[in-house]
Computed example of a mutant assay.
Amino acid sequence: MPLTPLDIHNKEFSRRLRGYDEDEVNEFLDQVIKDYESLIRENKEIQNQMLALQEKLNHFANIEDTLSKTIIVAQEAADEVRNNAKKEAQLIIKEAEKNADRIINESLSKSRKVSLEVEELKKQASIYRARFRTLVEAQLELLSQDGWETLESHAARDAERELLRG
Rank of each mutant, 00 (worst) to 15 (best):
I71N: 05
R161G: 03
V114C: 01
K87E: 13
F132S: 05
R18P: 00
S68I: 03
Q124V: 02
L108G: 01
R165Q: 11
Q75D: 15
L51F: 07
K113R: 09
S111P: 00
E88Y: 13
E80D: 15
I40C: 05
E27T: 13
L108I: 05
E117K: 05
V25L: 14
L6E: 00
N58V: 04
N83E: 15
K87W: 06
A89W: 10
W148R: 14
Q139T: 13
S144H: 14
E45P: 02
F13R: 02
L39V: 09
L135D: 15
T66N: 04
L91D: 11
D65M: 10
A125S: 13
L29Q: 00
Q139M: 10
I72C: 06
V81F: 03
R41V: 02
L142E: 14
L67Q: 10
I8M: 01
N83Q: 15
E42R: 13
N43Q: 11
V114M: 10
A52C: 01
L3Q: 10
L163C: 00
K94L: 06
D35W: 07
N43R: 10
R18E: 04
E76I: 04
R82P: 00
A96M: 07
L3K: 09
N26M: 07
E76F: 02
A96K: 11
R133K: 15
N26R: 13
E22G: 01
K86Y: 03
A52R: 13
E80Q: 15
R41Q: 10
E12C: 03
E117P: 07
E12R: 14
V25K: 06
K11E: 03
S115Q: 08
W148D: 09
A78D: 06
E117V: 04
E80G: 06
A156M: 07
Q49K: 08
I127R: 12
S109M: 00
L67E: 03
A52Y: 08
K113I: 01
A138T: 11
L51V: 09
L143Y: 15
A156L: 10
L135V: 07
K123G: 01
N43C: 09
L142H: 03
S38E: 12
V136K: 09
I40P: 00
P5M: 14
N58I: 09
L164M: 10
R102T: 04
E119Q: 00
Q139H: 06
F13E: 14
K98I: 12
L163A: 09
R15N: 08
R15V: 12
A85R: 02
L121I: 01
E37Q: 11
K123W: 03
Q75Y: 03
K123C: 03
Q145G: 15
E88C: 08
A52F: 10
L164R: 11
N84W: 03
I72R: 03
R157V: 04
Q31L: 04
N62Y: 06
E137A: 06
L163D: 11
R157E: 13
E22R: 14
S109A: 12
A78C: 05
I127M: 11
S115A: 11
N10I: 02
D146N: 14
S38K: 11
R129D: 08
A155M: 08
I104C: 08
A52E: 14
S111K: 07
M1C: 07
W148S: 05
N10A: 02
H9K: 15
I127G: 00
L67I: 15
L151N: 01
